[in-house]
Computed example of a mutant assay.
Amino acid sequence: MTALAGKVALVTGAGKNIGRAIALTLARAGATVLVNGRSDRAAIEAVAAEIVAAGGRAVPQLADVSDPDAVAAMAREVAETLGGVDILVSNAGLRRQTPFTEMSYAEWREILSVALDGAFLLARAFVPQMIARGGGAIVALSGISHHVGTPNRAHVSASKAGLEGLMRSLAVELAPHNIRCNCVAPGTIDTVRGASAGASPGMTGGIPLGRKGTIEEIAAVVRLLAGPEGGYITGQTVHVNGGAFLT
């Protein structure tokens, strides 16, 4: 599998779950993968080591995507060491469940700062590199919550809805530069959820396929959108949810 040979891919939130699966999948397709995480250096180093052990190329990149200076520094380092990025996967996000009447502005901003502000900062930092390299692909990880309406997740839903709007706008604006921008919206996926995330709210039943999705199934769709096979797809939100939400 060499469809992405010669490409450099940055995957944020890649230390576990969906991000890890995306990093492994892009590496298997031949890309050099920058494995990003915010604070758990051991996790991203383990994923990078797993890729290298399988014969791929990977570099751990510790940086908080909500920090403009950290993102700018990461972009400079990537430009100096690898010449830039061709594929950007904005996967990093925080899961939280809080009733709206108990939600502080600080918590609201914390959630939006990673998924939405982070995607903006990353695109602003790395799109110039893509333009210089003749094009690229941005894939952002959205979700099902804001499509079906989910209680206690107003901040998460707002961040993901904004993310889809950002990708649609960038898809049109960056198309002349041969940069494609899409979202993948997972449904209920079999992942290890942190304590603050709680159970999958409102999404535990009613899945026509009768099961949770796998992280590999999400990674495969990201791989399609990032590679040459997805060359005519841009500005879309691709739902991967077993039929739980139909567009």
Rank of each mutant, 00 (worst) to 15 (best):
G55R: 01
L26S: 13
S39F: 04
I18P: 05
E45A: 01
L26G: 12
A23R: 09
T25I: 02
L26K: 06
A48R: 06
A63G: 04
A48M: 00
A21K: 06
G37L: 10
T25D: 14
T32Q: 02
N36M: 08
G37Q: 03
A63N: 02
E45I: 08
T32P: 01
P60H: 10
A58T: 05
A63T: 03
A53R: 11
T32G: 02
V52M: 00
I22K: 09
A43H: 07
A23P: 13
A63Q: 05
G56S: 05
A31P: 05
A31L: 08
E50Q: 15
A54C: 01
D64I: 14
A49H: 12
A23D: 03
V35Q: 08
L34Y: 03
G56F: 02
A23C: 08
V35C: 08
D40K: 00
A23H: 12
A23K: 01
A46I: 09
A21Y: 03
Q61V: 15
G30R: 09
I18R: 01
A43W: 00
D64E: 14
I18L: 15
A46Y: 09
A58Q: 02
A29F: 05
I44E: 02
A58V: 06
A21G: 08
A29R: 15
A21H: 00
I51S: 07
A27N: 04
V33I: 04
A43P: 01
E50L: 11
A29I: 04
R57G: 12
A27L: 04
A21W: 08
I18A: 09
E50V: 03
I22G: 12
P60W: 04
G19A: 11
A46M: 03
I44W: 06
V52G: 00
A46F: 05
R38H: 05
